[in-house]
């Protein structure tokens, strides 16, 4: 289980997270919604210790991430797959080498490594792309390779940072399908940060909305669809304007 407890994080004068608390249950996919620049990716990076909270803590499987020693943090990271917003593929390496790089840190035989590379590329339907360089891939293919690199590790958790951003609707739907399939086949707990509502409804078991540095509302997909919170409603309906008076006053029956 992943637990955010009162996490605050600022970059200079920009307070990105401010008392952010959220419980991410095991074996489910939790989607964190929020506006661009609202701190969704910042929250995600705290899970793998890429960022350290100014206040509060992030607990993964009972371990406080920012208190872990170097070796312990490396061990934790071995249990987490991270799919970056722009894939973050190593551009001097082929697709196969990108996947192999992560596997090389596991105690696997060369045959097992090759098997996992083939298997993960098959899962993302890029069987023949192993020898290509990232520069030769489309945006959607790069994201799929990013997913393949993460799932090849057979992690307990997979974190997806804006997995469908910038993709055409068909490719975005393919990525959604892939995320669902990965959860079904691997049983990994998923955390998806996105502002794409169609994607959120497709993949989520639970949805949490991040607003003003904290969770505005969290619940099942049905609860979010039926919310009366004006901020959440505005976001999920994609309405451009909201009177300022209603933004500051949540409706009844809302809250994390």
């Amino acid at each position: 289980m992943i637990l955010f407890e009162g996490v605050s994080k600022a970059f200079g004068s920009n307070q990105v997270l401010d008392g952010f608390s959220l419980e991410i249950p095991h074996g489910q996919t939790t989607v964190i919604l929020g506006y661009s620049g609202s701190g969704k990716s910042v929250a995600l990076k705290h899970i793998v210790g890429l960022l350290t909270p100014d206040e509060g803590r992030v607990v993964v499987d009972g371990s406080v991430v920012h208190e872990l020693k170097r070796d312990e943090l490396a061990e934790l990271r071995r249990s987490i797959g991270y799919v970056f917003q722009f894939a973050a593929l190593f551009d001097s390496m082929t697709v196969e080498e990108n996947i192999r790089l992560g596997l090389a840190r596991r105690d696997l035989s060369p045959a097992e490594i090759e098997e996992r590379i083939v298997e993960s590329l098959r899962l993302v339907e890029l069987d023949d792309a192993g020898r290509l360089l990232p520069a030769e891939l489309s945006g959607g293919m790069r994201k799929r390779v990013g997913i393949a690199r993460a799932i090849a590790l057979r992690p307990r958790y997979i974190l997806y940072d804006e997995p469908t951003t910038g993709l055409d609707p068909v490719t975005a739907a393919l990525i959604d399908h892939l995320m669902i399939r990965v959860r079904q086949e691997s049983g990994a707990t998923g955390v998806v940060v996105t502002h794409d509502m169609r994607s959120a409804y497709s993949v989520a078991d639970r949805i949490a909305m991040l607003y003003d540095g904290a969770i505005r509302q969290a619940g099942s997909v049905e609860e979010i669809r039926a919310t009366r919170d004006p901020v959440v409603r505005q976001f999920i309906e994609g309405r451009p304007n909201l009177p300022s008076a209603t933004v500051s006053a949540p409706g009844p029956g809302v809250g994390p």
């Binding site: 793998v48 990271r77 973050a88 840190r105």
Partner: peptide, 17 residues
Amino acid sequence: TMRVTEQVDALETLAYD
């Protein structure tokens, strides 16, 4: 370039020093 394209972060998440 690796830093600004998150390749360094990716390395760290793959448990590399």
